[in-house]
Write a protein that binds this DNA or RNA. Structure first.
Lengths: 336, 336
DNA sequence: CTGAAAGCGCTTACAG
DNA sequence: CTGAAAGCGCTTACAG
């Protein structure tokens, strides 16, 4: 019952094997130029021979930053974020960084916990899709000097790098499309307005109506929480109205799914009885029948861009912040 | 252009503020009982007053293990793994652990890289869905004494904790269902047999045929790589056969999607011309038309169970290994 | 119950 | 170009 755990090879072992100091080994490992070719070769040989892998924890403690990114999103099960995460991961991986995945579940206290944790892990930077635009807890990251980039959603009171999608424009086009199809009573199922995406998509909806001389009817605006169940409930409310909408625009993919469930449950046929437009275009929208007309977001690119911004920021902490806005395209299919 | 980065509060600051030694602070932080109530209170006050957060990196270096799990999967964009990851994350989070997400992309060298990295990060344990059953690189984790649990796929030459799904049974029921519908020529689109899931689902397919007196026709067996494109290609091959199958069983959700594309492209109608059964049942299968008959796996529970096994293993490294097999249910819908 | 001290495995000014 | 040494922020035997 005595367990022998093989101790791992340290920089000291490499130094001994190579007959040099640990400082020299460290220099070789860190591509420091001030090492003679002779010693460099010896060190490299030793590293090879001993199959040495640097202890990243020790390095992180010493240099006060790790090779890890914190990635704080709402829920990885939302295909939107799944794709964003993959974009981040690919860029991170090819630059020697790794990802700590944090699901905030739209819960400010969970978001806060995770921020504290990644801070305690001394991550090299954080990519976050914040639960709220104002008074977001990530200001502690900024204060601590940790590079932060906002993805998909911004923070109004923090001047940081950000990459978002043109939510106002996307929503505007979606609603204008419904108007073009002759609809005047268009229901809106939105997300929390404390989040950028919730606020801006509502703004796009309102603008489209106003520009086309349609009065905004508060009865047709229902705010959910970006989750499927709320899409279901809000759609039921809209369909139960005395004068129900003839079209529904849902502000993210999960609420669209919920709304479709409700619409089917109530026996409405799409697009004959009711036209539906979604925001965000996950892989399965073409498979629906009727296929879904939706605003497509460059999800993977969103993540990729965020990671690149973070890398640039780490490379140069003083540089002016960048705000990047990617286009969202309306994909017209059968549901409207 | 001079940037003041606020230095963070350390255990030393807390000790000073509380008027005790750092050892005492550490003991309080680690719930060590050998501290008087008086000093404990002082320390707690100081922690509160200074808003002290322990540096997890320093702790990890000292205790030679971090509060991070490595999670190595094939691709987070596969909804199967998305759900598994969420199950792992929930258990990890509620136990103070965090997750490093690693996508191996079915690529042994990428898997290897990630294993080296999480080892270098001194993770507390690794949950892995290995690319291959034999000679998997995760043996280096085991050798290094890092707890490892296999999820979804096992490793035949390593005696470690594992939680999998009854792949043979699931595939068997799927194929038997098609046979029950009168089909004799049933095509199989499988995954790489170097992975448990690839091998076992093929075995279930073969067993169902054999038990019903149907000769296994190698022409009907097409091995893809678990990705959508290969499902598409393999389905085309099957449909192009001189004597094409009247039913197709696809061994994971992405290949099923690819196969459906191919079937539609070739103008076959489901289930009239061709019956389709999938393995794995992501959220959108009921939305397809016709809705998909598929083997449903307890994905979230798979991840949850894996994380719990890992926690138990960390708590008691000597305990005998556990192999857990979860049931997979055939959900009969319209496609077969 | 408490504290001084060693040490985890690195990196990096500093001196030569 | 090279090495000895300090130190990152913790934890934990050890001594009292």
């Amino acid at each position: 019952l005595f367990l022998v755990v093989p101790l791992s090879i340290t920089i000291k072992d490499v130094a001994e094997y190579a007959g040099v100091s640990v400082a020299t080994v460290s220099r070789v490992l860190n591509q420091d130029h001030n090492v003679s070719d002779e010693l460099r070769a010896k060190v490299l040989d030793a590293v090879e021979a001993l199959d040495y892998q640097r202890n990243r924890v020790a390095r992180s403690l010493r240099v006060k930053t790790s090779q890890i990114f914190g990635l704080v999103i709402s829920d990885i099960r939302n295909p939107f974020f799944t794709s964003v995460v993959r974009g981040v991961e690919d860029v991170a991986y090819s630059n020697g960084y790794t990802l700590i995945l944090c699901n905030s579940d739209e819960d400010p206290s969970k978001e806060r916990m995770y921020i504290d944790i990644v801070l305690a892990e001394r991550v090299a930077g954080v990519i976050i899709s914040p639960v709220s635009e104002r008074d977001n807890y990530s200001k502690v990251l900024v204060k601590a000097g940790v590079p932060v980039v906002a993805v998909d959603r911004t923070m109004l009171d923090l001047d940081i790098d950000a990459v978002v999608v043109d939510n106002v424009g996307g929503a505007y086009h979606a609603v204008r499309h419904a108007i073009g199809r002759g609809h005047r009573r268009i229901g809106f199922i939105g997300g929390p307005t404390r989040a950028t995406t919730g606020r801006e998509r509502l703004a796009g909806y309102t603008r489209a109506l106003t520009e086309h001389g349609i009065t905004v009817d508060q009865e047709l605006i229902r705010i959910g929480d970006f989750k499927q169940q709320s899409g279901f409930e809000m759609a039921l409310l809209l369909l139960g109205l005395g004068n129900p909408p003839t079209a529904i625009f849902a502000a993210n993919n999960l609420m669209t799914l919920g709304a479709l469930d409700a619409i089917h449950a109530r026996g409405f046929r799409i697009p004959d009885d009711l036209c539906v437009v979604g925001f965000d275009d996950p892989p399965w929208t073409p498979l629906l029948s009727p296929s879904l007309t939706a605003v497509s977001q460059p999800t993977y690119q969103l993540g990729e861009t965020a990671a690149k911004l973070l890398l640039k920021r780490i490379g140069n902490p003083q540089k002016p912040t960048e705000k990047i806005c990617l286009k969202a395209d309306l994909i017209i299919r059968e549901s409207c």
